[in-house]
Design a protein around this nucleic acid. Structure first.
Lengths: 193, 193
DNA sequence: CTCCATTTAACGAACGTTCGTAAGTTATTT
DNA sequence: AAATAACTTACGAACGTTCGTTAAATGGAG
């Protein structure tokens, strides 16, 4: 299917060059087409971009949902650390997560409002999932604390810092060192000792 | 001085629209000039961009250096939390930090190599400052641990997560909640209890 | 008169988009 | 089964606009 090929190429160029820096002729050339042919599949650049964005968002959200529906609820340490590794895997396996990150932080100005809404939407969903898990673990005395929001936000902070290191991504050794350090301190910060 | 005005306007548009999305005519219009007049002050778009970048980098680095040369070395809790607040202040006071962040994560492709070098440079300098402080605090039993690298990386992770929240910046309430949560867990993770 | 910032004018190149058209595929009618 | 219609996909050509950049003319300050 050609429209999937186009979206793949668009994902690649939007991720590398941003919305304004990516051109339809580059994208078309990548799949062996002229730029005019893109208009047989998409209404225009904005339409192509938004479809790529929604695919990326859906992929990100479904990966998170699936992971946390299959975890061992008696082992928060394994569950939480495993999610960090999942993110690293996802990030390195395909471009969608990097694209999503770039566009949620620095959206094209004329689409900012719509994108912001999607970002808030996914963020709240993922936060809710985490908050429920943390509440369970607090209730069952597997981690310390009273309200679940504190470890939730702190954990999301660790996730963000790992994502940032991935985006920045100059060195795998440094990534692993940062992951180990953040995890060690975080886990000590929320576990009984 | 007109070239400073131009750099200020360039900073603004580069931050909002990125390198490719910002145009010289917009920047010139902001300071009441025609775009061709920019060439009396800068060699071209790249030159203007790189000068703005170096100004931003210098500002970021000098703020960090100055802060950590004036801290109370007997009180890591205050010093570390104060730096997080300094970052929030800096971020909200002027655009340079946001510009620096955007360009260090998503540099214009054709300048990537040079920018990456600058980012590695500043990152190493800031990490070294922190590492020395943490080593002192470990030696004087003000925080736990053996090697200073672990709390250094973990703290840099907290810094990153706060920066991300600032970039993303939809809500001051949420920013404060995330800051409080990350700090609480981090501090518990590195302090004696 | 000189210098320098700024202007007007113009450049080639690239941008996203639209149009008409041709070919190929699928569906409907004879 | 053959003929017709409708739809999809792709392309050449061109649209108007904007881009970064260069060159030459203008104007004012020292």
């Amino acid at each position: 299917m050609k429209s999937i090929e186009i979206k793949d190429a668009a994902l690649k160029y939007f991720t590398i060059h941003g919305y304004e820096g990516a051109s339809l002729s580059q994208i078309a050339e990548e799949v062996g087409l002229k730029k005019q042919s893109i208009y047989a599949h998409f209404k225009g650049k904005d339409d192509l971009f938004l479809q790529v964005l929604r695919d990326a968002k859906e992929m990100d959200l479904s990966a998170t949902l699936q992971y946390f529906s299959n975890i061992d609820s008696k082992n928060p340490e394994k569950a939480l650390y495993g999610y960090l590794q999942l993110i690293i895997d996802l990030f390195q396996k395909d471009e969608q997560l990097k694209f999503w990150l770039r566009m949620s932080f620095f959206p094209p100005a004329h689409l900012e409002k719509g994108i912001e809404q999607e970002v808030i939407d996914i963020e709240e969903k993922e936060r809710t999932i985490l908050e429920e898990k943390f509440q369970d673990w607090i209730n069952t005395k597997l981690i310390i604390g009273d309200k679940a929001l504190t470890p939730t936000y702190a954990y999301l902070g660790v996730v963000d810092s790992i994502l940032l290191e991935l985006v920045y991504g100059n060195d795998e050794k440094q990534l692993n060192a940062k992951l180990a350090a953040s995890w060690e301190v975080f886990w000590r910060g929320i576990s009984y000792q």
